[in-house]
Structure formats: C-alpha cells, structure tokens
C-alpha cells in the first residue's frame, strides 16, 4: 500500500522529480507523509511554512487522513494568471 506524492514548480526543481510513491503507514495523515518525504529529501524543508496540500485533487489540511492509493499534492503559493 502506497501513497503517491506530486511536486510542482519550485518543489519539483528542488527535489529533481515531480512524482514519488512512499509506503503508507498506519493512521497516516498529510503531515506525517510530508514529514517522511522531507526526512528523505531535506531540501524540501524550507518550503513547509507556506505549503498547502491536496488529497485526490481537493485542498486538505495537515491532519487530513491519507488512505491507500491516495494522491497527495504539495502545493507552494500559487501564481497563475
């Protein structure tokens, strides 16, 4: 059982990839998955203060539960338009 993490823009450049799968753990949340990712890729830590999150394409919170097969997007401040 895994969770797919999507990175964009500044995060994707800092990490060097746009997508990664991590093993899911019991009672996983957005914040817990994010912290495991940062454990592996410390270059992403500096983005955390302004990050938003989406689970399966809906904005989510750090305490939102993450289920098996879910897609978690890490969303830096947007700048469309």
């Amino acid at each position: 059982m895994t969770v797919t993490i999507l990175l964009f823009a500044s995060l994707a450049e800092a990490a060097g990839f746009r997508r990664i799968e991590l093993p899911l753990e019991a009672d996983d949340t957005v914040g817990a998955v994010r912290d495991r990712l940062i454990g592996r890729y410390p270059a992403l830590a500096r983005f955390v203060p302004t990050l938003l999150y989406a689970v399966d394409e809906e904005y989510a919170r750090p305490d939102t539960a993450v289920a098996a097969g879910a897609t978690l997007a890490l969303i830096p401040p947007v700048s469309g338009g």
């Binding site: 203060p49 938003l52 999150y53 830096p76 401040p77 947007v78």
Partner: peptide, 20 residues
C-alpha cells in the same frame, strides 16, 4: 525564480488550520 503570488492562498488567505 518561481513566483509566489502575493494573493495566493498559501501566503495570506489560508486559515491557520490549513497551514502546516
């Protein structure tokens, strides 16, 4: 540089509960 939009939800508009 990747621009962080001054109006972006992530910078100003997000309720504290949506941030880390």
């Amino acid at each position: 540089e990747w621009v962080e939009g001054p109006e972006s939800l992530g910078l100003q508009q997000a309720p504290a509960s949506m941030r880390s």
